[in-house]
């Protein structure tokens, strides 16, 4: 199989030109910075990771055509940098994270009744067309807001799993938690996130 620059991307929009487009570059940078900060919880570390990823992009810009290809690629580099930082950070259990060990311990009494079944008003509804949501920038504002409403540690492990795509074992090492701990946290994060997205996006304006 030959790897060509597919997706029918016109050659004229080269990555080099794209990187010279200041508006594009500024927006890309901000977006990368938000992405890195939320996961690293540290603006400086985030800035370093973004810098490095962009430097890499500049150096190899000639091999990429089209801004969407460039963007995916820059984000892939950024994800690698973040993964390295997160992996290197293990074994240092921050005092602040110990304090938050028991956050969200309520075990979702507000979602499930005593027998563990959904309360009628909490039952997940059908999501109409989740595929097209990703093309809507308003959806992404909601998504980021919902992420920010998760308890910090839940958000971190969720992002390690879903954005950086680390395996359970790696996350447990980096976050110094057991697998069952991790599964509980991911379960809670997903319950909250899906509820938030449903209430604020997928069933807007619907009577419940």
């Amino acid at each position: 199989m030959t790897i060509d620059n597919t997706a029918g991307e016109p050659v004229r929009d080269t990555a080099t030109e794209t990187l010279a487009d200041e508006t594009f570059l500024r927006e890309l940078r901000e977006q990368m910075h938000r992405f890195a900060s939320v996961q690293l919880g540290d603006a400086h570390l985030a800035e370093d990771a973004v810098q490095e990823a962009l430097m890499g992009a500049m150096k190899n810009a000639h091999s990429f055509g089209g801004r969407s290809a460039l963007k995916s690629w820059v984000f892939a580099i950024l994800k690698n940098k973040i993964a390295d930082i997160l992996r290197g950070r293990n074994r240092v259990v921050e005092a602040s994270s110990l304090l938050r060990e028991h956050e969200g311990e309520s075990d979702f009494d507000e979602l499930f009744d005593r027998r563990g079944h959904w309360y009628a008003q909490e039952r997940p509804a059908h999501w109409a067309d989740p595929e097209s949501a990703v093309h809507d920038k308003h959806f992404w504002r909601i998504f980021e807001t919902c992420l920010n409403h998760l308890p910090v540690r839940q958000a971190r492990v969720f992002m390690m799993r879903e954005f950086i795509e680390l395996e359970s074992r790696e996350i447990c090492e980096a976050a110094q938690i057991s697998v069952s701990n991790l599964n509980v946290m991911l379960h809670r994060a997903r319950l909250r996130l899906r509820e938030c997205l449903e209430n604020n996006w997928f069933s807007r304006g619907e009577e419940r």
Binding site: P10, A69, H135, K137, F143, E162, F163, I164
Partner: peptide, 22 residues
């Protein structure tokens, strides 16, 4: 949620990922 997260991590958040390059 997984598909949405993967798109997020590819930098699709300006909502123009369907826009043709150029």
């Amino acid at each position: 949620l997984r598909r949405i997260s993967r798109s997020f991590a590819r930098g699709a958040t300006d909502g123009d990922s369907s826009r043709r390059p150029g």
